[in-house]
């Protein structure tokens, strides 16, 4: 009859197993204090040049051929104002249809580069959707965020005016930068600017008296550590 007991335990095991799984995830050993990592997420509709910007920043190369990204993550050591940090870039798929999946991407980001193509009005319009979703997921008005108008080298095909874009940036209380992945114009700037914002945010969150921001910070991905 021993086999039956075992059996029942095994049969029941499935349910208990799932509840303990999250515990495992939380109590993961933090082996060593990692160098500061700033997590940047590239968002924007398909074909605006998110990957191009990322690759230019990472490897100083410009890829002409377009191939839709699924989701790629990059990491690189950079010198941020005399401090060595790591930048973790999540290059998301502009074509991702599923809001639920996008939510999962956004949750792990500390700062966002919201990219549109100045040659495509539609891509500019959809930035508000991305913004909206990010705010909803992060639940933080002050989340580090840059509005990036890419493909500035293609001035002759411009559909989105600087004024238009800046107006929106102002409305959101974020900066607007125009870049060209092809010429590398402003590529470093957007990443470094965003990292600085992230750093500032983190510093602010670390201050115990800054109650409000701290809370918000916690609603971000760090809550995993709790």
């Amino acid at each position: 009859m021993f086999s039956c007991l075992n059996l029942r335990r095994r049969l029941r095991g499935g349910r208990q197993g799932s509840s303990s799984a999250s515990w495992d995830a939380m109590s993961k050993p933090k082996t060593q204090a990692p160098a500061v990592i700033h997590k940047v997420i590239m968002v924007g509709s398909g074909g605006v040049g998110k990957s191009a910007l990322t690759l230019q920043f990472m490897y100083d190369e410009f890829v002409e051929d377009y191939e839709p990204t699924k989701a790629d993550s990059y990491r690189k050591k950079v010198q941020l104002d005399a401090e060595e940090v790591q930048i973790d870039i999540l290059d998301t798929a502009g074509q991702e249809d599923y809001a639920a999946i996008r939510d999962n991407y956004f949750r792990c980001g500390e700062g966002f580069l919201c990219v549109f193509s100045i040659t495509e009005q539609e891509s500019f319009q959809s930035t508000s959707e991305f913004r909206e979703q990010i705010l909803r997921v992060k639940n933080d008005e002050n989340i580090p965020f840059l509005l990036v108008g890419n493909k500035m080298d293609l001035e002759e095909r411009r559909q989105v005016t600087v004024e238009e874009a800046q107006a929106r940036a102002q409305e959101w209380n974020v900066s607007y930068v125009e870049t060209s992945a092809k010429t590398r114009a402003n590529v470093d700037k957007v990443f470094y600017d965003l990292m600085r914002e992230i750093r500032a945010q983190k510093v602010a969150a670390a201050k115990p008296d800054n109650d409000k921001k701290g809370k918000k910070k916690k609603s971000g991905r760090k809550c995993v550590i709790l």
């Binding site: 095991g13 499935g14 197993g17 799932s18 799984a21 999250s22 495992d24 995830a25 990472m58 699924k70 989701a71 790629d72 993550s73 990059y74 990491r75 690189k76 999540l90 599923y98 639920a100 999946i101 996008r102 939510d103 999962n104 991407y105």
Partner: peptide, 23 residues
């Protein structure tokens, strides 16, 4: 093996991590 967790595919986000250093 021991069962650890099960993720529904519905909202599972998969990210390709580009090789860097030892990773």
């Amino acid at each position: 093996y021991r069962f650890q967790t099960l993720y529904e595919l519905d909202s599972l986000a998969v990210v390709n991590v580009r090789d860097v250093g030892n990773c």
